[in-house]
Each structure stands twice: as C-alpha cells, then as structure tokens.
Amino acid sequence: MSGTLRNSTIRSGRSFDLGKMNLRQLWVAYLTYPTILLYFALALASLILAARNFAGWGATCASILAVVLIYPVVWYLLHRYVLHGQYLYKSRWTAAFWKRIHFDHHQDPHLLDVLFGAPSTTLPTIAVITLPVGWMIGGPGAAATAFGTGVVITCVYEFFHCIQHLNYKPKAAWIQRMKARHVLHHFHDEDGNFGITSYVVDRALGTYYVDARARTRSPSVFNLGYNVDEAKRYPWVMRLTGSAPKDRPDGARGDSDAPRGAGKHA
C-alpha cells in the first residue's frame, strides 16, 4: 500500500482505488465524496418538505414501504437490461452515457470515481421511480417522503457497493455472502447476481448463482460484450477511452486469481 493511502489523506487528485483502501479510509472517502454529500442534502430537504406537507403517518409509512419494495426490482431491471444492454454503445449519441454509467466500472471495478453513479443520471431516475408512487399514495408530502427514501436507499446501496470492492473482509457473515455474490458478477459471469444488497429478484428470475462452479467463466465479464471486434464496428466508446477494451483490469494476474480484497469468502 502506498504511503499516501496509509496516511489519513486519501484524495490524490486522481482515482481512489478501493482495492488498496481499508474500511476506515473508505468511511473518510465516502462521507466526504461530493455526490454523497449532495444525496445527504437532498434527503434532508425531502424530510423538511415532507414535514411541511405532512400526509399523515399512514401515507408516510406506506410511501416508505412502497419504495423499499419497488427499488430492488427497478434496480435489477435497469442493471440487467440497460446497464448491461449492448444497444447504447452502438450509437454515437449514447456511447458516452453507457461508458460512464457502467462500462468503466466493469473495466476496473475498484475505481471509486466510476463506482458512484453521476447525479445527472441517478437523481432523475430516483425521481421518476419514487415521486409518482408517493404522490398517488398521499400527495406532495408523501411524494417528498418517497423521493427522500429513494435517496437514502441509494446512499446505502453505494456504501455496500464500495464494501463489495474494498480491500476488506467483512466480519458479518451476511455481508460476506453479499460481497461474494457481487464479486462473482464482476469477475466470473456478469449475467447473474445483478442485485447489490439483495438478490431476491435474482432468485425469482433465475439469475442467482452462489459460486464459480455453477457457471462457465464469461469472456465478456470485464467488457460487457464491447470487445475489440465490437469496438471496431462501434468506435465511440473506444475513442473516449483512448484505448481498446480490456479483457481484464490492469494489474490482474490471471483469470483464476481472486480480486483484490476478496478474501476467502469474497
């Protein structure tokens, strides 16, 4: 580990490498990251709006519960069919969008810079998912509650997503299992384990698997199908990247090696 990462100063002006960070360093980076601070501010603003337009405890609790139930389903569908879809990179108008929202993350899963979604894409998505649900349940107050709930859930998702790529073996068995499933998604077969904190939808739709022996290793696990041949046909992502798509992250030793920070169970 570099001296910079050993010290309390984590920000280097470049990328944060979760594979070289410990839990304490993650907390510092997470709690000072601009996107997370924006989410905290929006959650507080939603709470204030919900209080000023209070819809009653029944509608408030119902809107929270509705978002908690809907969110994993919507995340699964977006992750599987949009983030892993191959149609966005085939257009010059959407190639940069696809590159930012997911391709870069699979090219090197340890980089914190691209692990967090950009607010310009996450916040409109959260609003579209939550505001209509809350409004139908209890008007503007419940809509504010629903939106705030979506923002809080996103913060939770982002933190556990970081844990799943961190150089750290969780002590809690349930977090170990959650991390192990997500690491399989990134380092073995990307067409499964689409959840972040919950794999209930994966189980229901047949995309859940528990170890590498269950499936053959995917050749597109790091490039999501955007390989060299595809890059020649649809060059826009490659031009933005400045190099050809990678078959594995920089520093990987071999296909059978466990990712950094995986530990025995991850």
Rank of each mutant, 00 (worst) to 15 (best):
M1F: 08
S15L: 12
D17L: 10
K20M: 11
L26D: 07
Y30R: 01
T32P: 01
P34H: 06
L37W: 06
L42C: 03
A50W: 02
C61H: 01
A62V: 06
I64T: 07
L65V: 14
A66I: 04
A66T: 06
V73S: 03
V73A: 13
V74Q: 03
V82G: 00
Y87K: 11
L88A: 04
K90T: 05
R92N: 00
W98C: 00
H102G: 13
Q107W: 04
L112I: 05
L115P: 07
P119M: 08
S120R: 02
P132N: 01
W135K: 01
G139Y: 09
A142C: 08
T145I: 12
F147A: 13
V152R: 11
F160K: 09
I163T: 02
H165F: 07
L166M: 07
Y168P: 04
K169R: 14
P170V: 11
K171N: 03
R177Y: 09
K179I: 11
K179P: 07
R181E: 00
L184P: 07
N193L: 10
N193T: 11
V200T: 14
V201W: 06
A204N: 01
D211Q: 00
R213W: 00
A214H: 09
T216K: 15
S220L: 10
K232L: 10
R233E: 03
R233D: 01
R239W: 04
S243C: 10
S243E: 15
P245S: 10
D250M: 12
D257F: 13
A258G: 04
R260H: 10
K264W: 09
H265C: 11
